[in-house]
């Protein structure tokens, strides 16, 4: 038996869902809630296997409570709102599935509830398409960031600084004065100046700003 909680502010929708789920032998509607806050209280108490969650509701909407609900139950979002941000937000906060009203036939609702109860997921066509593209964009961004970080690492290695000079350079980059660098590295200011002199030569820089710029991958003249 799969225990289901129905969360929707529209009593007609709740009634229709209850009636439909009741027609399946393996579904047991254990409760209903008209808003997000009530849903959290009920889910905490009843720990239903699956919660059908609408988004737009008074008091607290679905997105606000989905993470809390997900601690007690598997959340299957069932809403007419199919905005990309909402789909991504619900899934990031713990929803196991996303169904958009009008994109599925009744039998699919049962499959979705069963899938989510069994630890699988369920995404209606729009949910699937949004999720695929969000994940793909994210992976592309991460590859880009990784390759930039890699390039910067190589560039820095190319300058041939000693490890001490790197220490000085890193403190310089975050805006420390010579005196502050000296204190941090337990050096005299004169030694710091010496290191800076060598750093400027290796980085082909004539002043601190230019050195920082080059160390960060800039092309400053």
């Amino acid at each position: 038996m799969t225990d289901v909680l129905i969360v929707d502010d529209n009593p007609i929708v709740r009634g229709a869902l209850r009636g439909y789920l009741a027609s399946a032998d393996d579904m047991n509607v254990v409760g209903e809630a008209p808003d997000g806050r009530t849903a959290v209280t009920v889910a905490q108490r009843l720990r239903p296997d699956v919660t059908l969650l609408d988004h737009r509701m008074p008091v607290a909407d679905g997105l606000t409570v989905v993470a809390q609900l997900a601690e007690h139950t598997s959340v299957l979002v069932l809403t007419s709102d199919a905005a990309e941000d909402l789909i991504a937000g619900m899934l990031r906060r713990g929803a196991r599935g996303y169904l958009v009203h009008g994109e599925f036939e009744p039998p699919e609702l049962l499959r979705a509830v069963r899938a989510v109860a069994a630890g699988q997921g369920w995404l209606s066509p729009r949910g699937a398409s949004v999720t695929i593209s969000v994940l793909r964009d994210q992976a592309a961004r991460e590859r880009e960031e990784a390759s930039q970080a890699d390039q910067l690492r190589q560039l820095r290695q190319g300058f041939g600084l000693t490890s001490r000079e790197r220490d000085v350079m890193e403190l310089l980059t975050v805006g420390h004065s010579n005196a502050a660098i000296a204190r941090r590295l337990l050096l005299t200011e004169k030694t710091v100046k010496n290191h800076l002199h060598h750093i400027f030569t290796k980085l082909h820089a004539t002043n601190r700003t230019e050195a920082v710029l080059r160390w960060s991958g800039g092309q400053g003249q």
């Binding site: 899934l91 990031r92 196991r96 899938a115 997921g121 699937a128 999720t131 969000v134 994940l135």
Partner: peptide
Amino acid sequence: LGWLSPSAAAAVTWAMRAST
């Protein structure tokens, strides 16, 4: 639009949760 079988949907929703 798109289409994902339940186990694939489980995989991508997991990736979405992990992506925060």
